[in-house]
Structures are given as structure tokens and as C-alpha cells.
């Protein structure tokens, strides 16, 4: 291993611009993550956090800037000086390099917990049934659901469903995992089990980009914290810097308003 290996960013977002119709939602976002970074994005509602993650997972088109994942520019190519969106097959291949966990779980209701985790392994990674099942079992064990392999999502609690979703994302062995307010839809007593799961995968060396309103969790788990405001990154630093003295007026106000 040379030093440049860890120096090269795993994810490099440069000047990302995104609008919905005439409204500019992301106004030039620069953000870069090295392998094993755990970066949390905080910021008030509507500041563009979800939109940023969705651009990285290529669920949204974007109008300007580049997203470079492990050295590969994703989502667009340049043909004769013009920027064109890649085709579905290409986008799918690139999407498989990142995992995403959604606020509303989005488990497949017609498949069991194991079936949810196996689908990508079978269809994208083209693994055989047995092989895929072994991996699904391993990851469901990892999130504490080894006894629920054959349960359908409707038979699981919200916290359990979200842990299945985490297993589904991680089983694909993505380079980067995006988590968008994954505990916001949960009853308060179920939040901790999911946060604990995320903490443990962070400790295992996964690279995570997390949008969260759980300030205490962000402080504990993150190597860096990013504060977004109106489609821009307004502040960025270590948890100590962000939560310590010397932060900006705006960040101060945000942190005060989010502590209740």
C-alpha cells in the first residue's frame, strides 16, 4: 500500500449543481470522502441533504459538476463537448457501487428478509441461490436478525425492517453506503437498535455518508460533520470543531433549534 491509496478520495463531489425546474436546490457542493470516512450531514429541513444523497446514488439527474466514485465519473459522460446522461445499464452498474438506506425502509413486501437481501446478489451479482443465501444469512446475523430470515417485512417491527434494509445494502459489498435519516420513521424506542447497528458497521471500516437529525449520534460516529444550508455546505469539520466553540452564528442557531 502506498500513501496515495488512502490519499485518493473514495467519493469526490465537485461543484454539484441540481435544480428542480427553475429552482436551484444544490448550488455548487464540494465534498470528498476518503475510504473509511464516516461523514454526517446536518442542516435544516429543505437544505438539500436528501437531494445530495440521491444525486450520489444516481436517483436524480443533476445539471452541473461531477461526482467521482473511486476514480470513475458517474452518471454522465462527455460526448463531443456535451454532457449526456449514461444509459440505464451503465447507471445500474454504477449504482451497485453505492448502497442506500432510506428513511421509509423501502423493503420489498413480497419477499422475505432473506429474499430482500438476496435479490441484488442473485440478479446483479449473478450468484447462485445457495451462495446468495449464505451471504444473506451472514448479513442478517450481522444486524441481529438471524432468527428472522423467513419473515416478511409486514411481520417485522420498524427497527427490524430498517436493519434488514441495512443488511440488503451492505450485502452488495458497496464501496460507500448512504443513509438518509434512517431512524426518522421509527418509534423512539426502536431508534437505538438501528443506531447501534450503524455504529458497529462504521467500526468495521465501512465508508458512510449519513444524513441525520440525531446530533448525539452524529457526534459519536462521525469522523467529520458537514453543515448544509440552502443548497451549500456552510461549514465542515471534526465533531469537536462543529460542536465546540468558535462555530458560526447560523450553525449555533441550528444546533440550538434542533436540541429539544
Amino acid at each position: 500500500m502506498t500513501t496515495t491509496d488512502t490519499a485518493r478520495p473514495l467519493l469526490d463531489i465537485r461543484g454539484l449543481r441540481k435544480n428542480f425546474g427553475a429552482v436551484e436546490i444544490l448550488k455548487g457542493v464540494d465534498l470528498s470522502l476518503r475510504p473509511k470516512d464516516v461523514v454526517s450531514i446536518i442542516g435544516s429541513s429543505g437544505s438539500g441533504k436528501t437531494t445530495l444523497l440521491r444525486c450520489v446514488n444516481l436517483l436524480e439527474e443533476f445539471q452541473g459538476g461531477d461526482i467521482i466514485l473511486d476514480g470513475e465519473t458517474i452518471g454522465y459522460k462527455t460526448v463531443g463537448g456535451k454532457r449526456v446522461r449514461l444509459r440505464d445499464a451503465e447507471l445500474s452498474r454504477q449504482r451497485a457501487m453505492t448502497g442506500m438506506v432510506f428513511q421509509s425502509f423501502n423493503l420489498f413486501p413480497h419477499l422475505t428478509a432473506a429474499g430482500n437481501v438476496m435479490l441484488g446478489l442473485r440478479k446483479v451479482k449473478k450468484l447462485g441461490k445457495e451462495e446468495a443465501f449464505v451471504i444473506a444469512e451472514k448479513w442478517l446475523n450481522r444486524v441481529g436478525l438471524g432468527a428472522r430470515l423467513e419473515h416478511y417485512p409486514s411481520q417485522l417491527s420498524g427497527g427490524q425492517q430498517q436493519r434488514v434494509a441495512i443488511a440488503r445494502a451492505l450485502a452488495m459489498n458497496p464501496k460507500l453506503v448512504l443513509l438518509d435519516e434512517v431512524t426518522s420513521a421509527l418509534d423512539p424506542e426502536l431508534v437505538q437498535e438501528v443506531l447501534t447497528t450503524i455504529k458497529s458497521i462504521a467500526d468495521d471500516g465501512a465508508t458512510l455518508l449519513i444524513v441525520t437529525h440525531e446530533m448525539r449520534f452524529a457526534r459519536e460516529v462521525s469522523s467529520r460533520i458537514v453543515f448544509m444550508e440552502q443548497g451549500r455546505i456552510a461549514e465542515e469539520g471534526t465533531p469537536a470543531e462543529i460542536f465546540g466553540e468558535g462555530r458560526s452564528q447560523r450553525l449555533n442557531e441550528f444546533l440550538k433549534s434542533s436540541r429539544h
Binding site: 436517483l59 445499464a89 449504482r95 451497485a96 448502497g99 421509509s104 423501502n106 441484488g120 446483479v124 445494502a169
Partner: peptide, 26 residues
């Protein structure tokens, strides 16, 4: 719900695969 298509996309399924494995069964 549109989240089903997005979940399929996020694990790298192509649209025809999403249709066959996620949307049509439901």
C-alpha cells in the same frame, strides 16, 4: 410506492429487472 423502484435501483437492478422482480410480482 415509488420507493420500491428506488430501492431496486439502489441495489443496482436494471429497469427490466425491477419490473420482473419488484413491480410485477406486487
Amino acid at each position: 410506492p415509488p420507493g420500491q423502484i428506488e430501492a431496486g435501483r439502489s441495489i443496482g437492478l436494471t429497469f427490466p429487472q425491477i419490473l420482473a422482480n419488484v413491480l410485477l410480482p406486487q
